[in-house]
């Protein structure tokens, strides 16, 4: 297995606040890797830095063995990475179809229609509502749209930031079923979740993040049975 993403000794600051304190992790091709941890542990900061929305102070980020540390987000998309951000952040005043078109912004116009059809096939709800503005969708539909939009760039690595946040349990199940399907279809996924139970049940490997440090890592099933993890994140 080869590294798709390799992060080494990453440090990120918000002004004078040291948010990420030298973490290292990797995502191999075909894996689902999850970063779990409490609120404020630095999970989203990590994803935003990898995606290019934040600049690291130091450390290296390699995608396909090429450095992307400090490269702005809009230049990274075409290299095969997409981030489905926390809070979905779909374009509320644009239609479902337009949101998907934006997802394919970096791709040739001729391929867009086909990719939109692919997304509709995976998310039939979106097809029913393709003309509606995204602001009128329910939370679950917006999450599907955000994921569909991220898939439009045909990413090798899909990063999902809290896809289950704020959703009803039945929708959480649905979203995780979709994550599994995407994985089976060959997409490599880096998943950030507060819902550690769900995240660990779909992931191959996991990293536990605590106030900017990785405190534990290993195969997901192992962490699911780890006493310390159970006590801290699985609520029993």
């Amino acid at each position: 297995m080869s590294n798709l993403l390799k992060v080494e000794n990453l440090h990120v600051y918000y002004g004078s606040i040291h948010a990420i304190k030298g973490i290292s992790f990797e995502v191999n091709e075909g894996e689902i890797v999850t970063l779990i941890g409490a609120n404020g542990a630095g999970k989203s900061t990590t994803l935003n830095t990898v995606a290019g929305l934040l600049k690291p102070r130091s450390g290296s980020i390699l995608l396909h063995d090429q450095s992307i540390a400090g490269v702005p987000a809009d230049k990274i998309v075409s290299r095969g990475m997409a981030l489905c951000p926390e809070g979905r952040r779909v374009f509320l005043q644009m239609s479902v179809k337009e949101n998907l078109e934006m997802g394919g912004f970096t791709r040739p116009a001729a391929e867009i229609a086909e990719s939109i059809e692919d997304v509709y096939q995976r998310f039939p709800r979106l097809k029913e509502r393709y003309k509606q503005v995204a602001g009128t969708l329910s939370g679950g539909e917006q999450q599907m749209l955000a994921m569909g939009r991220a898939l439009m760039s045909k990413p090798k690595l899909l990063m999902l930031d809290e896809p289950s946040m704020g959703l009803a349990p039945i929708l959480v199940e649905q979203i995780f079923d979709i994550i599994k399907e995407l994985h089976e279809a060959g997409t490599t996924i880096l998943l950030v979740e507060q819902n550690a139970q769900m995240a660990l049940s779909v992931a191959d490997r996991a990293y536990v993040l605590e106030t900017g440090n990785i405190v534990k890592e290993g195969p997901a099933p192992e962490l699911l049975n780890d006493d310390a993890v159970k006590n801290a994140y699985l609520g029993d």
Partner: peptide, 24 residues
């Protein structure tokens, strides 16, 4: 137009637009 839609996307959410590959 693609540029026009990109403008609307940027006006709504610069960060999300950047994640789409739009040069803000």
């Amino acid at each position: 137009t693609k540029m026009g839609k990109a403008m609307r996307a940027v006006s709504e959410d610069k960060g999300a637009a950047q994640l789409m590959g739009i040069n803000v």
